[in-house]
């Protein structure tokens, strides 16, 4: 029960931190700019007018879509971290064959799939804003797409096996090999020559770094909370099972 209380507190703090980061991203964080744009007629716009010359009116081009990175990148990093936790517990399971490690690996994978989905959604939004299309087979998006599929595969595998121990062993083996595969997917997608534009570079100013870090901490706390709440739920289920067993005997 203590873990559940901690989890709820973490969820609350994590939520607050993420919200703070959200506000900061649009207030204190320095606006990233694409450069300027020059038009013939003056525009009715809030964007700062930089220069008026014989070439026309030069406005600054703000980069609003960049704001999504205060969420997208922390979520992506958190997802990879949680995936790593799942792989770690999978290895521990194979070494020790203790059910609790299997449960931990499974719960971490559940949390990871939430984060990977969030990463995908924010990534798709960014692609739409930056490149004008909803989807681009860009290395990071592609890697996350593959990761989502592998995580779905992980749960498909689990659901298709009756025997508890075999299920745990297979899931652990697949979790590990999927975790190894994710970075390979990323590198190979990057290195294989293709006709698509290669990735953007995003730079950071200090005022941008602060909301970024706050968002990162917030996300991780929310992630832990999801994991811990599920864990205490599973523990209760297991206790019910044991009691049922005892009653039948």
């Amino acid at each position: 029960m203590r873990q559940l209380k901690v989890a709820l507190v973490m969820l609350l703090i994590g939520g607050v931190l993420t919200t703070v980061a959200f506000v900061m991203a649009f207030t204190t964080a320095e606006m990233q700019r694409f450069g300027t744009v020059t038009v013939d007629e003056p525009l009715d716009t809030a964007f700062p007018l930089m220069e008026v010359s014989e070439r026309g009116y030069t406005y600054e081009r703000p980069w609003f879509s960049q704001k999504i990175f205060y969420f997208h990148v922390p979520v992506a990093e958190a997802s990879f971290l949680v995936f790593g936790v799942a792989a770690f517990y999978s290895i521990r399971f194979l070494m020790r064959r203790r059910k609790e490690f299997d449960t931990k690996a499974r719960l971490a994978m559940e949390t990871a799939i939430v984060f990977v989905t969030l990463t995908m959604i924010t990534g798709i939004l960014w692609t739409r804003a930056a490149w004008g299309v909803w989807w681009e087979w860009e290395p990071r998006l592609t890697t996350y797409f593959i990761m989502t599929l592998m995580m779905i595969g992980y749960f498909v595998l689990r659901n298709s096996i009756e025997d508890e121990e075999r299920r745990a062993t297979y899931a652990a083996a697949f979790g590990i090999i999927a975790f190894i595969n994710a970075p390979i997917s990323f590198f190979i997608t990057r290195l294989i020559p293709s006709s698509h534009p290669v990735v953007f570079q995003s730079g950071f100013a200090t005022s941008n770094l602060i909301p970024f870090i706050i968002a990162q901490i917030g996300m991780l706390m929310v992630g832990y909370a999801i994991y811990a709440i599920r864990a205490s739920e599973v523990r209760l289920e297991e206790r019910v099972d044991v009691l049922k067993d005892a009653l039948e005997g």
Binding site: G153, V156, L157, F187, T189
Partner: peptide, 10 residues
Amino acid sequence: VLFVPLMYPL
């Protein structure tokens, strides 16, 4: 379901 995503980079 397991094979295709793992095969992707290859």
